[in-house]
């Protein structure tokens, strides 16, 4: 009999700790399949976030580092700079990436850091029990917006894909979803492009994946998917936000011109009165 479906090799046998109906399991599997398909398991180093996916290192065979809340892009930067030929990805939720870690996210993106970010946007803080996230929709009820999110006190949701696509540094930014087979296939294809971009050393790639949180949204999983399609998709439209090859000009510093060196020597308290002779 022909085998038509199997568990990706990079996934371990450990049962996940995610709630029933949570989309993290689906997304883990997609990430794992892409790693398998690209044959990069032995080269991949993952960075897990703070949030529901904090323990994701239990579900993958590849090397992992577990980062402080929001700092995964900075940790990934450190790893990637040491191992530029390895594949480094972070997996972060919306609280981690779009609130406490906004600076790290924006600056890894604008540096064109050659890493891949898998960004899970489910409009809520899941692990701490359902508080407002930067991506919570207007009017959405959470533990910390009991009367619904309201602009005068809580402002408006952040569109990370939109925001980062205004930067020069990123190479590939896409927003996907996992609410249907079609969207799941699209997510897989997008992640494949994102990782390939990194393999080709073409720079920063981020795939935002809209997700549900049935537990904290207080809905059965299918109803949550329906709510997502009717509400979340309108605020966070799916699609390709940036796709551009970035040309990283590399200066040959071994033959750096004297002027550049001089400019830096003349700054600060460096003692160079000779310059005054010019």
């Amino acid at each position: 009999m022909e085998k038509v479906f199997s568990k990706p090799h990079v996934l371990t046998d450990t049962p996940t700790h995610y709630c029933p109906g949570c989309t993290h399991g689906v997304i883990h599997r997609i990430v794992a399949k892409v790693i398998d398909d690209l044959g990069i398991e032995g080269d991949t180093i993952g960075i897990s976030p703070v949030g529901c996916a904090v323990f994701m290192y239990n579900y993958f065979h590849c090397d992992f580092q577990q980062a402080a809340h929001g700092r995964a892009p900075a940790v990934a930067t450190g790893v990637k700079r040491v191992h530029p030929d390895k594949i480094v990805f972070t997996y972060q939720g919306d609280g981690d990436l779009a609130a406490i870690g906004t600076a790290e996210t924006v600056h890894a993106a604008t540096r064109g850091e050659n890493i891949t970010i898998v960004y899970i946007n489910n409009s809520i803080y899941g692990m701490t029990g359902g508080q407002m996230a930067p991506t919570t929709l207007m009017g959405q009820v959470t533990q910390t917006t009991p009367y619904g999110r309201e602009a005068s006190t809580q402002g408006f949701p952040i569109g990370i894909a939109e925001m980062l696509s205004t930067l020069e540094g990123p190479s590939y930014i896409k927003r996907c979803a996992v609410d249907s087979i079609k969207h799941i296939k699209d997510t897989e294809e997008s992640l494949r492009v994102a990782f390939q971009r990194q393999i080709d050393k073409k720079g920063f790639s981020l795939v935002e994946i809209l997700s549900t949180c049935p537990t904290n949204w207080g809905m059965p999983p299918l109803e949550a998917m329906e709510w997502e399609r009717e509400n979340v998709f309108k605020v966070f439209p799916l699609g390709l936000y940036k796709d551009k090859e970035i040309n990283f000009y590399h200066k040959d510093v071994a033959n750096a011109d004297e002027k550049a060196i001089k400019a830096s020597e003349n700054s600060g308290t460096d003692c160079d009165s000779i310059k005054e002779e010019d």
């Binding site: 308290t269 003692c271 160079d272 009165s273 000779i274 005054e276």
Partner: peptide, 10 residues
Amino acid sequence: GGQGILFAGK
């Protein structure tokens, strides 16, 4: 500053 005080010291 600019009179070369630090340089003379060095």
